[in-house]
């Protein structure tokens, strides 16, 4: 299977919508807030934080699952947003840019902490913990949580093999569930480019998975 993927041409996608989804973010109401924040308006920055804080927390929790560390990482994300908002060039939507910062910050955190063994209960929401405690015996519960942790660990290792951009696109597509058209609008790239990048990312993930199956130590993130 892997023999053909390297030599065959990249997809020649034909899309009538190619290029038409580009959005001028500078002239949106959000663009106006960003411009104010870029000029040093604290109120505008506060609006940005309040608008996206819940989303950022959810993204971080999805990746890291350490409830205690989620807020620390979120604070760091918004501090980075504050210090680099002047460099935001409106080529993508603000949330895409913040999403990228968030994912990178999570990977930094995982690299620093070398999180391999996660705290079991922190993996689940409080409701889930309550529900699980009432319905499942301890053995089954631990097995299920173990499986989830192993899956997430595996997925994070695979994603670590992608470039920042590929990782962002894969996460927006498969984790957030956006369509190619939406991705084109969010990133400012045309649909063909998105498809090519996603195809390459998928191929890389398959190769990384194959390497990991052959020699588990090789793909350690």
């Amino acid at each position: 299977m892997g023999t053909l993927t390297g030599v065959l041409p990249l997809p020649a996608f034909e899309s009538k919508a190619a290029g038409r989804t580009r959005v001028d973010y500078q002239n949106t109401p959000e663009g106006a807030i960003v411009k104010r924040a870029q000029a040093g308006d604290e109120v505008a920055f506060q609006m940005i934080v309040e608008r996206y804080q819940a989303k950022v927390f959810s993204i971080i929790h999805g990746i890291v699952r350490h409830r205690n560390d989620v807020e620390d990482i979120a604070q760091q994300v918004f501090a980075k947003v504050y210090f680099s908002i002047r460099n935001f060039d409106f080529r993508s939507s603000l949330i895409t840019w913040i999403y990228k910062i968030t994912v990178n910050e999570c990977y930094d955190y995982l690299r620093k902490k070398k999180v391999r063994k996660l705290v079991y209960e922190s993996d689940l929401s409080e409701d889930e913990v309550r529900r699980v405690e009432n319905t499942e015996p301890a053995g089954e519960r631990n097995t299920r949580v173990d499986n989830n942790l192993a899956r997430r660990d595996y997925v994070l290792k695979l994603l670590a093999k992608l470039s920042e951009e590929e990782r962002l696109l894969m996460m927006l597509k498969e984790v957030e569930g956006h369509s190619v058209e939406e991705l084109a609008g969010m990133t400012g790239m045309n649909e063909n480019t998105i498809k090519v990048k996603l195809f390459r990312a998928r191929q890389r993930l398959v190769k990384a998975a194959q390497r990991l199956e052959r020699a588990p130590g090789l793909v350690a993130g």
Binding site: Q46, V49, E50, Q53, A54, F57, S58, I59, H61, G62, I63, V70, E71, A74, Q75, F78, A79, Y82, L124, S125, D127, E128, N148, R151, R152, Y154, V155, L156, L158, L159, M170, M171, E174, V175, R202, L205, V206, A209
Partner: peptide
């Protein structure tokens, strides 16, 4: 590819996060 795409869903947030009050001042 299908298998990996399905596995990626493990990173989906499982619940809505309630941000603790005063988050902005801590930022």
């Amino acid at each position: 590819m299908q298998g990996i795409a399905e596995m990626l869903t493990v990173l989906r947030p499982q619940s809505q996060w309630d941000v603790a009050p005063g988050f902005y001042s801590r930022v």
